[in-house]
Design a binder for these strands. Structure first.
Lengths: 207, 207
DNA sequence: GACAAATGAATGAACGTTCATTCATTACGC
DNA sequence: GCGTAATGAATGAACGTTCATTCATTTGTC
């Protein structure tokens, strides 16, 4: 019985995928190693062959999140317009392959960052990297240069990120609703922000 | 030796104050009843004279938070201008009598809401009430009526709330920094939002 | 049969919760 | 006022449970 789950790397990812589901469902500290092993369909002990302990699993999950954010940023960078880039950023966490699971996880990640310095460092790292990326995105965008009021790209990026995180937090309260609905609301906010940013110079207004 | 900690009400509040500190420090589920009793300077068993169980303590803390938000809304309502009302809302959680403790707690509260339906209901309740309040605040404000682009008070309130929650999430990453610094950054964002909202109609621009 | 992969019962620490017990305070009979 | 009985706030050791972690054992591969 030699499926594609045989290499150590695949096993690690299988465990991380299960851990992600459990963490999103019950939180970092309420999800037990048994929960994770059951979700992955393996034994408890096997997890300890691939991870030193529970904290290592949490760290690996956080690293995975960092990678995901960087990929997202890359996708946004390749969008044809700033508006579309913003839409990519705002809807990422409600239409990814793993739907609204992500919001719950990210909020939990921030909560954990509030008390676990190692997690805090990683989240800070992700945040500042992403912020720099979006700042560049704005600085290089012709729309922004044309329409923006006396506000630096940096300040605008801060605004966008705060808004995005805030929406994400709100998503947690609506986890029972269908993902498309959440995505729709998310898009509406992104477009409102857009309107706010550029509607005063009618030539650049789009929607 | 009859201090002011003698009445049952005071005891309850003493326990809740300690619980709040422990929850902010370690999170709802990592903070133990022993932690709380030690922080309050009483025995474990005594907590169970005033609260049925740990969940009841969490619920009471959540209720307390609801009250705090309502008081904050009242204070915002009495501000002389919409800008000042916004500033009250945006800086509340970093300059209250209990400083940045609150951000960590609120983020944790949302995280808990993601998996505990009872907490979710309460947080939703607080959120919608506060949102209605701010929507009214905007609808009745002369500045808003004058300057706002084609955006309803409701949509604007949503934007403000998302922004506020997002900033709060970011605060968790800066818990080591002095509160005034956090407050300053918070104010800057509020003023930027303000600028965004109204600077295109120069007569209403203030800052 | 040798080696690594995988198991899951066993371990002990930590947790929420209970409850028999203590003891300062109050109420009462005289 | 004084001695005694009753009270209930407060204690913290003890209980049952859950958890992360370990490791002797089994399974599978070559």
């Amino acid at each position: 019985m030699s499926s594609r789950l045989d290499t150590p790397t695949d096993r690690r990812e299988q465990i991380l995928r299960a851990a992600m589901i459990c963490f999103a469902r019950r939180g970092f500290h309420q999800a037990s190693m048994h929960d994770i092993s059951a979700e992955a369909g393996i034994s408890v002990g096997l997890i300890y062959r691939y991870f030193e302990n529970k904290d290592a699993v949490i760290s690996a999950i956080a690293d995975q999140h960092k990678q995901r954010v960087q990929e997202l940023l890359e996708r946004a960078r390749q969008a044809p317009s700033l508006l579309e880039a913003l839409e990519v950023l705002f809807t990422a966490h409600c239409c990814d392959n793993t739907p609204q699971v992500i919001s719950a996880f990210v909020v939990d990640l921030f909560a954990e960052a509030g008390r676990n310095p190692r997690v805090a460092d990683l989240v800070r790292d992700v945040t500042t990297t992403a912020m720099k990326g979006v700042t560049d995105l704005i600085a290089k965008s012709p729309e922004a240069l044309a329409g923006m009021q006396n506000m630096s790209p940096r300040e605008l990026a801060e605004l966008i990120f705060a808004l995005n995180d805030g929406m994400l937090m709100r998503d947690v309260l609506a986890m029972h609703r269908p993902p498309e609905q959440i995505r729709e609301r998310q898009l509406k906010v992104a477009r409102n922000l857009w309107r706010l940013l550029f509607s005063h110079s009618p030539e650049t207004a789009i929607a």
